[in-house]
Nucleic acid binder design. Sequence first.
DNA 1: CTCAACTGGTAACAGATGAAACTAGCTACG
DNA 2: CGTAGCTAGTTTCATCTGTTACCAGTTGAG
Lengths: 152, 152
Amino acid sequence: MTDGNTTLKLDDFLPYRLSIASNRVSSAIATAYQALFGLRIPEWRLVAVIAEGQGMTQQALGAATRMDKVTVSRAAIALVERGLIARRPNPDDQRSHLLSLTPAGQDLYESVAPKALELEARIFAGFGAKELAAFRAVLDRLEASAAALDPE
Amino acid sequence: MTDGNTTLKLDDFLPYRLSIASNRVSSAIATAYQALFGLRIPEWRLVAVIAEGQGMTQQALGAATRMDKVTVSRAAIALVERGLIARRPNPDDQRSHLLSLTPAGQDLYESVAPKALELEARIFAGFGAKELAAFRAVLDRLEASAAALDPE
DNA sequence: CTCAACTGGTAACAGATGAAACTAGCTACG
DNA sequence: CGTAGCTAGTTTCATCTGTTACCAGTTGAG
């Protein structure tokens, strides 16, 4: 070491670790979904949320999935094209549609969901319940505090 | 609830939470670096690693930062253009260069590093040391187990 | 009414990122 | 040596994601 100043080991920098870990996990999941169901992450997220609450607008879906409205729009179009979701006109607002799963979409969801849980279990295997709960809690607070800093 | 089947609340799905939190944090950091120093994340990562170990090849930098060699190449070119790093020929291998910080790069690093730590502190404010250590440990194991699943 | 400001959704555009193709240099084995 | 196969780095191309611009429809003030 030739410098006598502030040093920052990248490996000790938490935002970096977080980013790496998250990218690895996302990539593993994306690969699996793509291979198993031909779904990309935004599409799968939409399916999951619509399955819990049929008849939502894209607006609501964007809020629920934290995705941009553009991303939601594209995913929705792709899912309609594949016959996995259907759009009903919204009687309260001509501009928007209410999205719900078609029978095919419902079927897909029912095979995707267990697979998702299994994948999650495999990735998070070897962690204790308390450990995971703590991890989740940190993520939640982190999400809030980072959002507060970034006025985007 | 009208279905009697497996349900998966997206909000309970850890990979999703992880991805959201990570994106928020990365975005906050990217915004800050861009505004303060005109650096993008890959560039800043390179600076940080080169500062710890001058005279590395891009190959080595890629391994250290977990970034693609293309990303490293682009970041290196951008940093050279700005006069923040210099490339020396590698006497052992004509194909590769050894990268090190210029005085300007060193200066920049010395003002970036404290700022980075401060940002990290702010984002992770309100967490206990033990909590953070546990969080870090989970990230580490996660990184490994996700990488193992994704043969990419 | 009707006009201005606003919102849901899409399209067009731009930036970031990774995979594949390519170039130049290295290494090994005949 | 010389040629086949490999590696460091760059370029090219496709893909993903978000910002901006835009259109149709809605709401509220007058």
